[in-house]
Amino acid sequence: MSATPQKTTAENKVKLSDIAKQTGYSLATVSKALNGKADISDTARRTIDKALKDSGYVRRISPERRQQTIEVVFRDFETIWALEVLRDIIRETKQHGINVMVAESGDRQHPDSAWVEGLIERHPIGAILVFSNLTEKERYLFKSHNIPFVVFDPSGSPTLDDLSVQADNWTGSVIATRHLLELGHKRIGIITGPDEMLCSRARLDGYSAALAERGIPTSPELIAEGDFTTPGGYEGAMALLEDERNRPTAIFAGSDLQAMGVYEAARQLKIRIPEDLSVIGFDDIQTSAYMGPALTTVRQPLQDMASTATRMIIDTTEGRQIQKRVILSTSLVVRDSTRRLVRP
């Protein structure tokens, strides 16, 4: 049992069997609600929780149960981007003597319920969630067990009460597109991320806003949806470049990994970068500087994002006031994959 009862009088203790009788639920259901199990209804959970509070039953986590660990969950762990984020989280936690546990959800937007239940049982000092927000039930479980969580680069819009950290995706996309426009490009393709992800929509909106500044309408034929992976970038680039007469002169890839896919598509189509096609990415992962040619990209401050998310967990645990929503600035890194458009 992960909680201990608080005395209501000197002689009396609240018993779970009393809560079961009071609420009409079984002892097993009361125990599940108390220990954060997911396989009970929201109605039962709220009713039992209220009865526990009204009766003076207080959840207590014994000091030895709280692990000096932060759990980090990724949708997958197959990309350089994920490795860089993890490296930067570890760099920060080491300074505080905190361990890191990593989980893979296998879902772009949400962890599976088994991971959530397991985390409640392990009771780390906090969790960093690299995906969209939790469900209301899961948010309740985290908060009722005093486990703070930070949504890192959220896929959806965080609630006002959630802790979150992200980059300024809209501004980053604006400066990337402006860079291409200043080089004389007007027919600029974009390979986005998944439409349901907040950062992807922000980058597309920034691209459209920069075009609108020059009076250039957004053309659907120049937009390809990707998934922030290299294969997705390759497929998007092939779709944009297959019609030789209507090819864009530049492509803004929504991530550096997608830019790698653009490079491969250009190689297969015998399109030279940057002579025939300018390419710009987003993230500035380590390998972008070593691509051939070196990739012009938007630097997403991954190290600052990772350290900020980690400190938000630590500060919350230690009772300090923090800013709940942090948006960090992006910047342009100009290398060799973009050049001024030269018309014959």
Score class of each variant (00 low, 15 high):
residue 257 L to F: 08
residue 162 D to W: 00
residue 141 L to H: 10
residue 261 G to D: 05
residue 117 E to W: 03
residue 125 I to L: 09
residue 56 G to T: 02
residue 65 R to Q: 14
residue 266 A to W: 00
residue 200 S to A: 12
residue 138 E to A: 09
residue 22 Q to H: 11
residue 32 K to P: 00
residue 321 Q to H: 12
residue 285 I to Q: 10
residue 159 T to W: 11
residue 73 V to I: 15
residue 169 N to A: 11
residue 163 L to N: 05
residue 19 I to T: 01
residue 267 R to A: 12
residue 178 R to V: 06
residue 41 S to W: 04
residue 146 N to W: 09
residue 64 E to T: 14
residue 12 N to C: 07
residue 72 V to C: 05
residue 332 L to D: 00
residue 309 A to P: 04
residue 184 G to I: 06
residue 250 A to R: 02
residue 235 E to K: 15
residue 294 A to K: 04
residue 230 T to F: 08
residue 68 Q to Y: 09
residue 148 P to T: 07
residue 205 D to H: 12
residue 39 D to P: 01
residue 98 I to F: 03
residue 224 A to D: 04
residue 252 F to H: 00
residue 173 S to I: 05
residue 283 D to G: 02
residue 218 T to Y: 08
residue 212 A to E: 15
residue 331 S to Y: 00
residue 94 K to N: 15
residue 123 H to T: 15
residue 136 E to W: 08
residue 28 A to Q: 13
residue 215 G to R: 02
residue 112 D to W: 01
residue 150 V to L: 05
residue 15 K to T: 12
residue 97 G to A: 04
residue 120 I to W: 03
residue 124 P to I: 06
residue 11 E to W: 12
residue 123 H to L: 07
residue 38 A to T: 15
residue 198 L to I: 09
residue 177 T to R: 02
residue 159 T to V: 08
residue 249 T to Y: 03
residue 19 I to V: 09
residue 312 M to Q: 14
residue 264 E to M: 12
residue 199 C to H: 15
residue 15 K to Y: 10
residue 69 T to M: 13
residue 322 I to S: 00
residue 188 I to W: 01
residue 153 D to P: 00
residue 115 W to S: 13
residue 240 L to K: 01
residue 242 E to V: 14
residue 294 A to E: 05
residue 102 V to I: 11
residue 98 I to W: 05
residue 187 R to S: 10
residue 185 H to V: 04
residue 16 L to T: 05
residue 173 S to W: 07
residue 49 D to T: 15
residue 180 L to R: 04
residue 232 G to Q: 06
residue 20 A to Y: 05
residue 319 G to C: 03
residue 59 R to H: 11
residue 208 S to M: 13
residue 337 S to Y: 03
residue 309 A to H: 04
residue 160 L to T: 15
residue 110 H to V: 10
residue 209 A to T: 12
residue 152 F to C: 01
residue 25 Y to C: 00
residue 7 K to I: 06
residue 207 Y to C: 02
residue 32 K to G: 02
residue 126 G to E: 06
residue 216 I to K: 02
residue 256 D to M: 03
residue 344 P to C: 04
residue 29 T to S: 10
residue 268 Q to V: 11
residue 1 M to L: 11
residue 143 K to T: 14
residue 131 F to T: 03
residue 302 L to W: 06
residue 4 T to E: 14
residue 77 F to I: 11
residue 317 T to C: 15
residue 234 Y to C: 04
residue 77 F to T: 06
residue 333 V to L: 09
residue 269 L to Q: 13
residue 293 P to L: 07
residue 56 G to Q: 02
residue 42 D to V: 11
residue 63 P to I: 06
residue 298 V to M: 05
residue 43 T to N: 12
residue 14 V to A: 02
residue 338 T to H: 02
residue 75 R to M: 13
residue 22 Q to D: 10
residue 128 I to S: 00
residue 131 F to M: 15
residue 287 T to M: 15
residue 109 Q to K: 11
residue 6 Q to V: 13
